[in-house]
Design a protein around this nucleic acid. Structure first.
Lengths: 404, 404
DNA sequence: GTAATAAGTTCTGTACTCAAACATATTAGA
DNA sequence: TCTAATATGTTTGAGTACAGAACTTATTAC
């Protein structure tokens, strides 16, 4: 357990160094990552999945057990012929903190190795929080959990999911339009306020990774994730199993691609963006709802047959299809995962969306792609942000445990 | 030297297996790849670049020398203090064949390890070649070179660059609209016709990789490549140093993204694509040229001050900027490389394009991106296609040389 | 109760890599 | 011209990761 220590502002080592995960993923890393992603696997399954010799797998798991990262237990499922293979479980006491500032709340969570959300605290705010306020709220909640954390958990760090452009290397939020944050060194602020190691990234990118790792697109290596929120559309792209980041970590802004040449101008500086044409507000207005809960929206959409609503749904689905046509042609993804009100929109007119995407896309990539609603729901951001904090541990378990 | 043997159609091993390069890039692979990409490097430089111990580097280079993949020579440049470090050169006698079918010709090349084009034969065709004709032409040219190849070279295989959608895993050209090829098993056909191992991929994707490896974007890990040809616009995307392929290898079709909602319909099934709005033909028409040579086009554009030409240039640059805005927001690339008539278009109005891209893109990724004309010119496709054939050798030099 | 099966365990060999000590080829300066 | 400084190649010995073979163990099938 780590001691609760005060950090000086020069002690920058608690901001994760970029390139720390450049080290080629080692064998212990592969095993720990598999166990983390699957929740639990038998030694025999790990042997098959890694392609390593079973004697080697034995040694590696023993080391992970010695480090307290995993534990073995008797097999649970129905028995097979042959000696039973013990199941390897991730140790949920090895945990990561997740922080997700939004326009109306700051959510703080604790996520165990294996991806289970162990604690979640949503702290509503009266107005849009500043970066300093968000950090203070998170730090206060974490301070409140500190006794429990130090007694029962090994916390590997904090992952912060921010709705905006983030330079991942230094953890600076360059521009979060809806929070009105500009050049906020969130990683440093959070590290100084809590003493934990901190990494920051774009929320939709983390969501994309979480959906690939634990959600609707488990095991799919090429996927597009799009989340429709009250304030806009965020996106994340996973290609060949890796999240696309671009040079600075800004990649994935599918919400700001052209879908309508004569569209209205967008806060991003352009016009006719997906985000300006496909919005939650007109749907809620047509339905005379004011709550932004995606599930309620989906229910209301399926219940209504008001032609004004239907027409708005069709209009938005057409623009969404155009955006998807672009990304399907450019990425040849296996799946598109829709979250938030976009999932509700899809549920309201699934055939229309799929038909429009297929018609506009090039034949071959268009025939490949499938569309799914997101699966992780409320815990998505916690899991995604935690993944950010787990990354270094999963890349180099032995090195990480020795260093911390 | 491999013997000239006849292959049966069941002998499918000569189509490269997918996933063959899944093996984590080994140390000999890293050294050979560095030498191949740089043309030559001193042992001291290799030690620094790989981070390996110099004794290890010595052993590895000795093995590569023993396999005849590289050779050492006295250092050429100006001398430094200290013992001179011998330069390691790729052996150009280890070579790959490159084939590039186009609407008016089939080009066959021989490219040595290190990326130098050693031979190039352009075989013009009277009409658009069928897949069988293209394979026959290539096989005939290769048969003609066979004596020289067997005597002086070790040929690692054939890479084919096709302007169309290609399933890389099995080497089937799904759809090449301008060649009018559909579901042509080019890898298998070429393997049977020549006896060599064959891999096939999209031409623009290979060009993107070649520009990253040897051309205008050397060492840039996140780049967008766009090539404007007589028949359309092809694109390739490199993210984190790896070419994006998508699930089936169709990724990169930036030519088929929306730039104009009321644009004309495109052969791809959609409308308002970059490829339908930005075309070489109207530029040539305005200039009263009929040759499609990009260099001549660039010269003519810079020489003219005909307002009709200028207006067409401005119109096309505006649409190109819109397409670039989309990819800049989605990928956050470090560089955009423009080739073919798009390079001429850029040369004609560089400030306009850059200003429009910067204005429309989100501020942060827009500020990051630079625009470059392509550097490799005529040899680009040969180098790119050869890279496809070299891939397996570069990934596992020892294993490859033992097996072949 | 015995065979078949599947898997964990132990032991040994090999390949890769590093570090240290040593050898060598060059420049800088006395 | 000689010597020091420097950078690098070379040799040797040791450590680590991993595979493979032989052996052991726990389960099902008959």
């Amino acid at each position: 357990m780590r001691e609760n220590r005060v950090m000086s502002s020069t002690e920058s080592s608690h901001v994760f160094e970029p390139g720390a995960e450049l080290a080629r993923s080692s064998s212990p890393a592969r095993i720990l990552t598999l166990v983390h992603r699957h929740g639990s696997l038998s030694r025999a399954q790990l042997t098959k999945l890694t392609g390593l010799n079973r004697s080697t797998v034995g040694v590696l798991i023993a080391a992970l057990v010695a480090h307290g990262l995993v534990f073995e237990a008797a097999p649970a499922g129905e028995a097979q012929v042959g000696r039973p293979s013990p199941e390897v479980h991730p140790n949920p006491a090895v945990a990561a903190l997740a922080v997700n500032p939004e326009v109306d709340a700051v959510t703080i969570g604790l996520v165990g190795l294996g991806g289970r959300v162990l604690r979640k605290v949503r702290y509503p705010t009266q107005r849009i929080p500043t970066a300093a306020e968000a950090v203070n709220i998170a730090a206060a909640v974490i301070a409140g959990m500190r006794g429990e954390l130090d007694a029962q958990y090994r916390v590997v760090g904090i992952g912060v999911a921010v709705p905006g452009l983030v330079t991942v290397a230094d953890g600076v939020v360059r521009h979060a339009p809806h929070l009105d944050w500009n050049n906020e060194p969130v990683a440093q602020m959070m590290a100084e306020a809590t003493g934990y190691r901190v990494r920051v990234a774009n929320d939709a990118s983390l969501a994309a990774e979480a959906e690939m790792t634990f959600g609707a697109a488990t095991g799919i290596a090429n996927l597009i994730y799009l989340n429709g929120g009250a304030s806009g559309i965020g996106g994340g792209i996973v290609a060949d199993g890796r999240l696309l980041t671009g040079v600075c970590g800004y990649a994935g802004e599918i919400g700001h691609t052209l879908v309508r040449s004569d569209g209205t101008s967008c806060h991003c500086g352009a016009f006719g963006c997906l985000e300006t044409e496909v919005r939650q507000a007109p749907l809620l207005a047509a339905l005379k709802l004011d709550a932004g809960d995606p599930a309620a929206l989906a229910r209301a959409l399926s219940a209504t047959n008001d032609p004004a609503v239907t027409s708005e749904v069709h209009r938005q689905v057409a623009y969404l299809a155009t955006a998807l046509r672009n990304v399907v042609n450019v990425f040849n993804p296996e799946a598109v995962v829709l979250d938030g009100f976009l999932a509700a929109l899809y549920a309201a007119a699934p055939e229309q969306l799929l038909a429009a995407v297929t018609a506009q896309s090039m034949r071959e990539p268009g025939a490949q792609v499938t569309i799914h609603p997101a699966a992780l729901g409320a815990d998505l951001m916690m899991v995604g942000a935690a993944e950010l904090a787990f990354a270094q541990l999963l890349t180099d378990p032995a090195g990480f445990m020795e260093a911390h």
